[in-house]
Nucleic acid binder design. Structure first.
Length: 593
RNA sequence: GGCCCCGUCGUCUAGCCUGGUCUAGGACAUCACCCUUUCAAGGUGGUAACACGGGUUCGAAUCCCGUCGGGGUCACCA
């Protein structure tokens, strides 16, 4: 055991999918706060929902955190090529809640024995009926304590628990007012009688979130809890639990209440909560449009086909018993599965909103601008640059040195992708050509393998240099580089561009192109600078502007009027390829054909 | 609906705690112009906000009250 760190923060995701972008900000702030104060940042996996948790999700979340540069001092170990993250220096693990059930049970029994918790036997259906009745009568539903009245004596409660009869355990909520001292929001009061007897252990024997959090935060010595404001209303329950519990070890002291700070929510541009469900919403809306235009059966045929194609992907969940039913559930809104949303997006050719860290990674965002942008959602360093402008570009290291709870804002922040995109573009622009070439190549190898396979190192660097300043994301760069993948003998050309740049004015462009073709064969070396000056000299010799020469060439080699500068474009294509493309163009547009 | 939180340009925000220096600053987006072989990039400039109503005060974006508006949460999910 090492001595207790001055500050212990934690991030406690449930492994039911990828890391949510909002979760990433929570983790980032907790990490930064721990760093700032020389403390520890703990990663704990809250997998008490057996049905929805998976090891793959836990692993994915850890990889995404590490990718963002958020390393945890304590928690499950993750071996990376360059380092290992995690560990258990204070012996407070394990860090998967499913492996801590014995601890929770110990404290559940403590509460039952001391009369602060009791078993209850209603079925979910019975409870649901009561809840509905209360809503119908326009009353606030609260658990009616029927089970408590049934078992007034502690010894009878213990007996019933031991009998093996299915039950949940409920916490006997205190009647008194609870004040949460929040570092961000100030004192938040919850009046007496607001809390009901919430469940602390489910029928399957696992603790509920509320209970597990309180036990683990105490046992792991968490000093500061920073989380999103959606949890604010849970906090009085946690405080009540902390007041009711004492440590099971020798000193038997009461539980401590950590310092709380509730961060503003990150929401969509329409102010709704940003959640994974948004993917399903977008996919469903598109699917319904399709159904309106065609038919549900048509959609299902395509759905089945895409599903079969993607069957072996790791994201694919267990095969459903009835695909038609799964399909129906998704369409009706019964299910909001991210995976089925993805299948829908594939078959309908639509883009899903980026919600999870992996979405941004796939779409070619860099980790630096993501954490930088995230830092500014609900926090601000409040510093000026020497030129008087606000300081807002910084890295994780800066955050770790300057982050403070006092400067966390109170109002929710809309997630403006346009600004993130701009940050990402700036970060790409700040890379050296060589660094960008390497990063871009690495990204392409995973997400767009055709492109790098096509080019050697020399040409890749020329391409990367040309693409860098027009790429806001790695994926964007692929668009600018589309000309690389064009077959040299392709006879498809942008129609309007052919008219405008090659055929207009009695085929003036085409004539210049034919003349330039022979010059091109002689340019030496076949490098961007030499090619560019050859084109300039050619234009000057003809007494025409650069545009009159450049656009015909561009259309001929790229098939479209848009490409990186011609020197670079031609050098990447190579002399032979360029000649072939121009010849194909000339032949295609020849009047004799 | 109950409970809780919030309210500065379209968006993220600085300023608010410790009223005057705020004719409210920056960034993204947007518009115009410049540069330019296309697309970008870059440069210059512009439009644009203190939710509303009452107080307190010589003076309010800043303090107080109310109204309105937005959001969160009300599970054997976390």
């Amino acid at each position: 055991m090492t001595s207790a760190p001055p500050v212990v923060t934690r991030f406690a995701p449930s492994p039911t999918g990828h890391l949510h972008i909002g979760g990433a900000r929570s983790a980032l702030f907790c990490w930064a706060f721990a760093r700032r104060h020389g403390g520890h940042f703990v990663l704990r996996i809250e997998d008490t929902d057996q049905a929805r948790s998976s090891d793959e999700s836990a692993r994915g979340i850890m990889e995404d955190l590490a990718w963002l540069g958020i390393d945890w001092d304590e928690g499950p170990e993750l071996k990376l090529p360059d380092r290992t993250v995690g560990g258990d220096p204070r012996s407070v693990g394990p860090f998967f809640q499913a492996r801590r059930v014995h601890l929770y049970n110990q404290y559940i029994m403590q509460l039952v024995e001391r009369g602060r918790a009791y078993p209850a036997f209603e079925t979910t259906e019975q409870l649901e009926a009561k809840r509905k009745a209360a809503v119908a009568a326009k009353q606030t539903y609260r658990y009616d304590r029927a089970a408590l009245r049934e078992l007034p004596e502690v010894k009878d409660r213990l007996k019933r628990i031991e009998s093996g009869e299915p039950h949940v355990v409920r916490f006997l909520a205190p009647a008194e007012e609870v004040i949460v001292h929040d570092q961000v929001l100030g004192d938040v009061k919850y009046g007496e009688g607001e809390m009901d007897d919430f469940v602390i252990r489910k029928a399957d024997g696992f603790p509920t979130y509320h209970f597990a959090v309180v036990i683990d935060d105490e046992l792991m010595g968490v000093t500061h809890v920073m989380r999103a404001q959606e949890h604010l209303n849970n906090t009085p329950r946690h405080v009540a639990l902390q007041r009711a519990l004492v440590r099971d070890d020798a000193d038997g002291r009461p539980f401590k209440t950590p310092v709380y700070g509730h961060m503003p929510l990150i929401v969509n541009m329409d102010a709704s909560k940003m959640s994974k469900r948004d993917k399903a919403k977008v996919a469903r809306a598109a699917a319904r449009r399709f159904v309106d235009a065609f038919s549900e059966d048509d959609l299902f045929v395509r759905f089945e086909q895409v599903w079969k194609e993607t069957k072996d992907l790791p994201e694919n969940p267990r095969p459903p018993n009835d695909l038609k039913e799964t399909f129906g559930d998704f369409l009706s809104g019964e299910s909001d599965s991210v995976f089925w949303a993805w299948v829908m997006s594939r078959m309908l050719g639509i883009e899903l909103p980026e919600i999870e860290v992996s979405d941004f990674r796939q779409n070619g965002y860099l980790p630096g601008p993501i954490t930088n942008f995230l830092s500014l959602l609900g926090w601000n360093p409040g510093m000026k640059l020497p030129n008087g402008k606000d300081l807002e570009k910084f890295d994780n290291q800066f955050l770790a040195q300057h982050f403070d709870i006092e400067r966390i804002g109170k109002s929710s922040a809309k997630f403006d992708r346009a600004k993130l995109l701009s940050f990402n573009a700036d970060a790409i622009g700040a890379l050296t050509d060589e660094a960008f070439a390497a990063e871009w190549r690495a990204w392409c190898r995973t997400y767009e393998p055709a492109l790098p396979n096509h080019l050697d190192d020399r040409r890749w660097l020329i391409l990367a240099r040309a693409v860098k300043q027009r790429a806001r994301t790695m994926r964007d760069g692929v668009k600018s580089a589309a000309f690389v993948l064009r077959p040299d003998d392709s006879s498809e050309f942008d129609k309007a561009a052919v008219e405008k740049n090659l055929l207009a004015g009695d085929r003036a462009g085409l004539k210049l192109l034919a003349e330039f073709r022979d010059l091109l064969a002689k340019i030496d070396p076949f490098e961007p600078a030499a090619i560019n000056s050859a084109i300039e000299a050619f234009a000057a010799g003809k007494g025409v502007g650069m545009g009159a020469v450049a656009q015909p060439i561009r259309v001929a080699v790229a098939g479209s009027p848009v490409s990186p500068p011609l020197g670079e474009t031609l050098a990447v294509i190579g002399r032979q390829g360029a000649l072939k493309r121009i010849d194909t163009c000339l032949a295609t547009l020849s009047p004799n054909r």
